[in-house]
Design a protein around this nucleic acid. Structure first.
Lengths: 203, 203
DNA sequence: TGGAATAATAAGGCCAGCCATATGATTAAT
DNA sequence: ATTAATCATATGGCTGGCCTTATTATTCCA
């Protein structure tokens, strides 16, 4: 059924979940995320549509079909299980987990995925704090708040990191901004400008 | 330097080591092993030559250059380390190790390879009995004898399995023909016909 | 030495996934 | 209502890796 999707296909599907705001994603955002041109993303969206993985309403956006959703969760599961393995057992640097696990995920057969999950003790979250979809495809997204929506002065716990680029992750890592960390918002510059944070336990 | 080789390139290089009889391999045998036509293998050999990975003497065969040798050993190292991991930690069926590890090997960054080796305790042999090249590329092939060369009546220990196809491996697995097993050659049919073996400990 | 088997090359084609450039269509905001 | 920005589409092109179907070289063996 999941006839074996190409690496590229898996990346598109995963990207859709990762930036899936309410399920409909603009093709342009997909393109940006995947580092391809809008034209290329558009072509690919057509192919994905033909395969029944997404549905595309021109000028509106793309959304995952049932099948696409299942496939995407499966990719996410592999990705995040590998992140756990690389972090806990191979002691790989936190900031590189996403990148390195991403390469492995496309090469992982179902029996390896499930054996890996068992080996790891069926973890429910990856080292970036994101939930790991279950083997049956069930997947409950985090209930949390984007940092941008936190009022100035409030103190929060970091639930998960959404960034995926190694550089961005390293930036956070260097400042100790990891899941579980506690911080308060000191200042928010206008026009989506920089946030000034105080990390609890640092000065 | 090892600029990142394509999956296909890595497969060709690995195949050359695996069936490297005295280092010069006929293009036809490469094609057979990789399941492509002779024409395709020939084209690919050209590309590999252009990349300085192999050297090809028409009508004679192909051999690995220094660079190609190093790259091939590196692939082999990844392959066999993953075999160890899949077998010892994920409890994957012996006959499927090659196939599943093969997929992972191409997606494995250097730091993952080395961290994996440490995690596994720097194993020297894979579950098929073949040596794992060292991180520096050093690699001493096994000293053993092909079963076809064993005289009738002799008793031998199985040092390593060379087969890579899952079906062939499963055939051996089902008969308990694994590294370490002891057997004697009862009969050898002419013209490279079947061998009749007695496995020590079985009747 | 001549023929069979094997190897190499040439020519044309396919597919996925990307690219650029250019032209329409739609949306949203003034 | 007009316009800028975004999105879609058409066209043509590229690369890697594979394919088939010839045709031509070479090797090896009888």
């Amino acid at each position: 059924m999941l006839t074996q999707l190409s690496e590229s296909t898996e990346m598109y599907l995963k990207a859709m979940v990762e930036l899936g705001e309410g399920n409909v994603v603009a093709v342009g955002r997909l393109a940006g995320r995947l580092g391809v041109t809008n034209v290329s993303a558009n072509e690919m969206v057509h192919r994905l549509t033909d395969q029944g993985l997404v549905s595309h309403t021109p000028y509106k956006g793309v959304s995952l079909t049932k099948t696409g959703q299942a496939a995407a969760c499966n990719v996410l599961r592999r990705q995040r299980l590998w992140e756990c393995f690389l972090y806990e057992h191979l002691k790989i640097e936190w900031a590189r987990l996403y990148e390195l696990a991403c390469a492995l995920e496309h090469a992982t057969a179902p029996e390896v995925t499930e054996a890996l999950s068992i080996f790891l003790g069926d973890p429910k979250f990856c080292p970036r704090g994101n939930p790991i979809p279950a083997a049956d495809g069930s997947f409950e997204p985090l209930i949390g708040v984007s940092l941008r929506e936190v009022p100035v002065g409030a103190t929060v716990h970091v639930l998960a990191i959404n960034a995926t680029e190694t550089d961005a992750l390293r930036y956070l890592q260097d400042r100790g901004i990891l899941p579980g960390c506690e911080m308060s918002v000191m200042e928010a510059a206008p026009m989506d400008g920089p946030l000034t944070l105080r990390i609890v336990g640092q000065d």
